[in-house]
Nucleic acid binder design. Structure first.
Length: 851
RNA sequence: GGGCGAUUAGCUCAGUGGUAGAGCGCUCCGCUCACACCGGAGAGGUCACUGGUUCGAACCCAGUAUCGCCCACCA
């Protein structure tokens, strides 16, 4: 039975395939998830929701293509694939984008203005607006961005089920995030603590360990003398990079074994100018080789200060405010008039200015005995910030993640070992991060656009909040914003009134919500039927830079909530690097935007480039690979056009010719190799296998059997050739379908019913049955002889259609017999007049061509 | 300082024990009736280095060097 060939263009082209097929897939629901399937039939994928602000870059295209190849493979293997897509729209990037886009800033103290219209052009002076107005702008802008993103993903051909789309800021995500937080709170996994916190002074928010990065900055060691209390004429010199914090000094510290200072432990010095008495203490963290070997402890200059402060039980003397400026009010521990005068000189200034003023004052007062020594040192920054972090004491919410609990940490490390990592060595990044945690997960942020922390605090008779007994929201009220909603048992009139309540003003870290993507998309405590069908998920796909954040935090939430892994497999993608091997810059012009690339090269070509990048490996951006991919797609069109134009169809005749059988034998081996690679999540290997076979198929097999297929050697030989060609084409289209969805669908539509993307992944067994008795060595031998004939013509600078009068083949009797089996094909393909065979001892086939 | 990865042709990279591979680029040839957005042929590599295991090492082991990433350090 031969289906009619329909709609094959004379000159097939790649142009317009995206516009033709993407709407068809959507209309026919090719990628729609069928939830009637049971867990064993379902393959569920937890995808990273890309940050909706700003723009997608080629790195996104790279890793999302990898996931899509896996999804398409699994779908063809018969799994019902659950493949949703979300947008991570809450958090700082959106706030920053809204501020710049509209020229506004959020001021929580302002009332909501229902008639507010954002300026069309951002003005230099930012307009202050209420939190609700601000959030509305955030939502409006992200909605626009997300439409653009979705269009791009569709053009790239991601086989996601768009009816499963979610936003991390939508009602459902906020409710899920708050529900999970309340569960953590009820179990004691979420708690508050007032403690020194890494603080970004620009955004005025606390930041978590996972969000830190080090940056090299110029600095200077200032050598400052502290008069000893026992003998004020004797000064102890310390070296510091932060002289502006001298007023916050609480002690000096040296190593307990340091002979220079051993005798002084227990005595004290007075801080220069401020004249505050501080003790000289011993601690092993003090490094005798650094500076003068004795350090000034301030509250707080760096994380080591925090350690010393805690372990030596030192007092807290903060002078750094939340805004990054020295606190205006002169502290009461500074008593001398000279000290209070100097403090007034730095009060309200930035760290930079106060440093200048302190150095000037110390120098003119004679406490500095040498010029500052300039250095370059690394300083902690918030990864999205642009000023060094300060450390200020604040009340924050934490979630237990093993950072302060060895038993939990060990369990989470063990969870990591349960995950099937692709590639396997990525597990060590996880393990190293979890083992290196120094504290619990700080989840509260002093920002506006995000998921509010769903608690209130009662106010006592004097109006002071009772932080020890937060009033939790009830789950039926979620999502809730405590700044506008009223807690159970209160009326709105009691807000901010003694005996009443206040809402927690903070929002949660963006990871506190995105760590719940399995719960958000999987229907947790919302659609338990769906949850039972998709959880634990089969696959988490993401890039390696967010193992410490997204991957780890997802494991934490699932471990705490379900006592289970969130997914079985983790497929980790690499980064895209510039051609010069540097990490890809942000703006590289239009040629580098995903849309520009898709329009110039076509989706299949861009996908080919992405799929060529090995799992986990950083890959250079390479337009050349896209051109190769485009060439491959065009070749598929042309070769298919040729094979189908012959009238070749599967199953129309028995495959009888040795060369045809041999080709099928080789194809079966390729199917095995591609399948094995895909089962190991090695999509790039699967592509390589399919591609290698295909080029050999076109260049050698098709060329060899072409004339026979035309019928020049009789009907039976033609029928065998055509049946084998059609089978090979069908199989290869399916091998390529996960990588090149458009061109394979186009060709499939010419002669098959339904979508290639819902067709069955080819099995080697079926190909072997058709090619039973095939011996790949026959094809290898024929190719070798054909190559020798071509070489002879090429060396003689002749056209390939010139006749070779005689071809002499020497080899073992077995080898000669193999060549004989394809002699008729070799004769027509190579335009050979006469063949002769000479038995020979050498294993190597030798061919002499006479022209 | 610790960890992970990489080092193979001019370039980008496959190849995990059995006679060195692909694509691009380069050279030469060919408008052969699927394809000039093409086809054919060719040149080009002591597989970073040093030792070891093995009949045999690009591959396994130990060490060295260089590069990248992560972490620690930050007075």
């Amino acid at each position: 039975m031969s289906a009619p060939l329909r709609d094959v263009p004379d000159k097939p082209t790649l142009e317009g395939l995206e516009d033709r097929w993407a709407p068809v897939w959507e209309a026919k629901g090719i990628y729609r998830f069928d939830r009637s399937k049971n867990r064993a039939e379902i393959y569920s994928i937890d995808t990273p929701p890309p940050t909706a602000s700003g723009s997608l870059h080629v790195g996104h295209v790279f890793s999302y293509t990898h996931t899509d190849c896996i999804a398409r493979y699994k779908r063809m293997r018969g799994f019902e694939v659950f493949y949703p897509m979300g947008w991570d729209d809450n958090g700082l990037p959106t706030e920053r984008r809204v501020q710049n886009y509209y020229g506004v800033r959020c001021d929580s103290s302002l009332p909501y203005d229902p008639d507010f219209v954002p300026p069309t052009e951002p003005s230099k002076d930012q307009v202050s607006i209420s939190r609700r107005n601000f959030v509305e702008l955030c939502l409006a802008l992200t909605t626009e961005d997300e439409k653009t993103f979705e269009a791009m993903w569709r053009q790239l051909g991601l086989s996601v089920d768009w009816s499963q789309m979610y936003q991390t800021i939508d009602d459902h995500s906020r409710a899920t995030s708050q529900r999970a937080f309340l569960a953590n709170l009820a179990r004691g996994e979420a708690y508050q603590s007032e403690a020194p916190t890494l603080w970004d002074v620009t955004y005025r928010t606390a930041v978590a360990q996972a969000e830190l990065e080090d940056r090299e900055r110029p600095g200077a060691y200032h050598r400052i003398g502290f008069p000893r209390v026992d003998d004020p004429s004797d000064r102890l010199y310390i070296e510091t990079t932060r002289p502006e914090l001298l007023a916050a000094c609480v002690a000096l510290v040296a190593h307990p074994d340091d002979e220079r200072y051993k005798a002084m432990f227990g005595s004290s010095v007075r801080t220069p100018i401020f004249d505050v008495e501080v003790p000289i203490l011993a601690h092993t963290l003090a490094d005798p080789d650094k500076g003068s070997g004795i350090a000034m402890i301030c509250t707080f200059g760096d994380t080591t200060d925090v350690t010393w402060w805690r372990e030596l039980s030192l007092p807290t003397r903060p002078i750094m405010g939340w805004d990054g400026r020295i606190i205006a009010k002169t502290p009461d521990w500074i008593e001398s008039s000279a000290g209070r005068e100097q403090y007034a000189a730095i009060a309200g200034t930035t760290a930079f200015t106060s440093k200048e003023r302190m150095v000037e004052a110390l120098t003119s007062a004679g406490f500095v005995d040498r010029e500052p020594r300039t250095i370059t040192h690394s300083v902690k920054f918030f990864e999205k910030g642009d000023k060094p972090l300060e450390i200020v004491t604040t009340r924050q919410w934490y979630l237990r993640n093993g950072g302060r609990d060895a038993e939990l940490r060990d369990r989470l490390v063990a969870r990591g070992a349960e995950i099937k990592w692709h590639p396997a060595y990525m597990q060590s990044r996880y393990t190293a991060w979890v083992e290196g945690l120094v504290g619990d997960w700080l989840v509260s942020r002093q920002r506006f656009f995000g998921v509010p922390i769903p608690v209130w605090y009662g106010l006592d008779a004097s109006g002071q909040p009772n932080y020890d007994e937060p009033i939790a929201a009830t789950t039926d009220a979620l999502p809730v914003d405590p700044s506008s909603a009223t807690p159970p048992g209160f009326t709105e009139a009691q807000r901010g009134v003694a005996g009443g309540f206040i809402g927690d003003p903070d929002i949660m870290d963006t990871w506190a919500t995105s760590s719940l993507t399995p719960q958000i998309v999987g229907g947790w405590q919302h659609d338990e039927d769906l949850w039972g069908r998709v959880f634990p998920f089969d696959l988490r796909a993401q890039a390696h830079d967010i193992i410490r954040t997204w991957l780890f935090s997802t494991v934490v939430r699932s471990h705490l909530e379900e006592d289970a892994l969130p997914w079985t497999h983790a497929a980790i993608s690499g980064w895209i690097l510039d051609p010069d091997r540097k990490k890809m810059g942000k703006s590289r012009g239009n040629a580098m935007t995903p849309i520009g690339l898709l329009e110039e090269h076509g989706a299949d070509a861009v996908r080919y480039w992405a799929a060529s990048g090995r799992p986990g490996t950083d890959t250079a951006f390479d337009v050349g690979q896209m051109k190769v991919g485009r060439r491959l797609a065009i070749k598929i069109l042309n070769a298919s056009n040729f094979v189908l134009g012959l009238g070749a169809r599967e199953g129309t005749a028995a495959v009888t010719e040795p060369l045809d059988l041999a080709m099928l034998d080789a194809l079966a081996t390729a199917v095995d190799a591609a399948t094995e690679a895909f089962e190991d999540y090695n999509y790039s290997r699967a592509l390589e296998v399919a591609e290698a076979f295909f080029w050999s198929f076109c260049d050698d097999h098709v060329e060899l059997v072409k004339d026979r297929a035309y019928g020049t050697l009789g009907d039976e030989g033609a029928a065998s050739a055509k049946a084998a060609l059609a089978t090979a084409l069908s199989v290869q289209l399916r091998l390529f379908a996960p990588f090149l969805p458009y061109v394979t669908e186009e060709v499939w539509s010419w002669w098959q019913d339904g979508s290639v993307h819902r067709s069955q992944w080819p099995t080697a067994a079926a190909v072997r049955t058709l090619g039973a008795g095939g011996d790949v060595a026959i094809a290898t031998a024929a190719n070798a002889v054909l190559t020798a004939i071509r070489k002879a013509k090429s060396d003689a600078k002749l056209s390939m259609k010139e006749t070779a009068t005689r071809v002499e083949v020497r080899g073992t009797p077995e080898a000669l017999d193999r060549v004989r089996q394809s002699e008729p094909d070799l004769r027509t393909a190579g335009r050979v007049g006469e063949f002769s065979y000479l038995p020979h001892d050498s294993e190597r086939l030798e061919v002499t061509v006479s022209l």
